[in-house]
């Protein structure tokens, strides 16, 4: 270990907080997950120094795959400067002493909650998603043995009942986030609560995408260049959200916009949810 790293890290912790055996077991799970794209692999989720629901699954995956030469970026709702993002980034800086960044292009490892960066990812980059509920069929089938059987036998008709109900009630498929996808024409997968807008970015993405659900103790993955298709009906094809105005900071028309209330009179503005992308667009 070189001295520079030792000085930066918190004493008394193993590199990346988890012990080597745990990291190895999670990596074994991840290898299986990569081998069967979209299939959920159980793993022995550990207690982390934060509560479930704050990204324990994602943190464990990140801790298992991070190396000293990695550059880490953490996104929370598209932003790099919100509580969750700042804390997770600081946590890994403390226990790994790795470089961190807010720039998508500089990062080798990106842990995310709720968004995929607008800047296209490249080969060699790794995305880690924090997943609250990994099972797409959970809403229609509460039994775990039964959902496993449905996955094994590719019985995914029930999922279309949900889309049918959406169209019947709202006239269009109203599921706006965590929109179910078919991976590699085989497994149905929940892409974690990313907006429907980000679903097309999952398809044939050159980066390795890893998913970790800490409370539910499941891992799954999308290897680079995997086909990912969003579910739809022939007469109601999948579509993404659009806005009739550009971002008020950078003028981008191709990014996912957040509606922000700015005063007590109901004034609001629309801005990019991806802060890094917004800054880069403003500079250029």
């Amino acid at each position: 270990m070189n001295t520079a790293t030792t000085n930066l890290t918190e004493p008394g912790f193993n590199f990346a907080y988890l012990d080597e055996q745990t990291k190895r077991s999670i990596r074994r799970g991840l290898l299986k997950a990569v081998a069967i794209p979209g299939h959920q692999i159980p793993f022995s989720s550990r207690e982390m120094p934060m509560s479930y629901g704050w990204g324990t699954g994602g943190i464990q995956v990140t801790a298992s795959v991070i190396g000293k030469s990695d550059t880490l970026k953490v996104i929370d709702q598209g932003a790099d400067d919100t509580t969750n993002a700042v804390n997770i980034r600081r946590f890994f800086k403390k226990v790994c002493g790795v470089k961190t960044t807010e720039k998508t292009t500089e990062a080798t490892l990106i842990q995310t909650r709720h968004r995929i960066p607008e800047t296209p990812l490249n080969e060699g980059q790794v995305m880690v998603y924090q997943v609250p509920i990994p099972e797409p069929l959970r809403w229609i089938e509460p039994s775990e043995p039964e959902t496993r059987k449905m996955h094994a036998l590719e019985e995914y008709g029930a999922m279309y009942v949900k889309l049918y109900e959406d169209i019947t009630q709202y006239g269009h498929i109203a599921t706006a986030y965590d929109y179910p996808v078919m991976v590699n024409n085989r497994y149905m997968m929940r892409p974690s609560p990313i907006p429907r807008f980000d679903n097309p970015k999952l398809n044939m993405n050159p980066a390795l995408q890893l998913f970790g659900a800490g409370r539910e103790k499941r891992l799954y993955a999308l290897p680079p260049y995997t086909t990912v298709k969003s579910l739809d009906f022939e007469d109601h094809p999948f579509s993404v959200e659009t806005w009739d105005k550009p971002c008020e900071f950078c003028g981008a028309t191709d990014s996912y916009l957040d509606e922000v209330v700015i005063d007590n009179e109901g004034g609001r503005m629309w801005i990019c949810s991806d802060t890094d992308y917004c800054e880069e667009t403003q500079k250029s």
Partner: peptide
């Protein structure tokens, strides 16, 4: 918890029908 139409349609969706109309 789903409408009558979805109840009837489920078996059709099970066997691979993907046309809402």
């Amino acid at each position: 918890n789903v409408t009558a139409g979805a109840n009837i349609g489920e078996r059709l969706m099970d066997i691979g029908q993907r046309h809402y109309g």
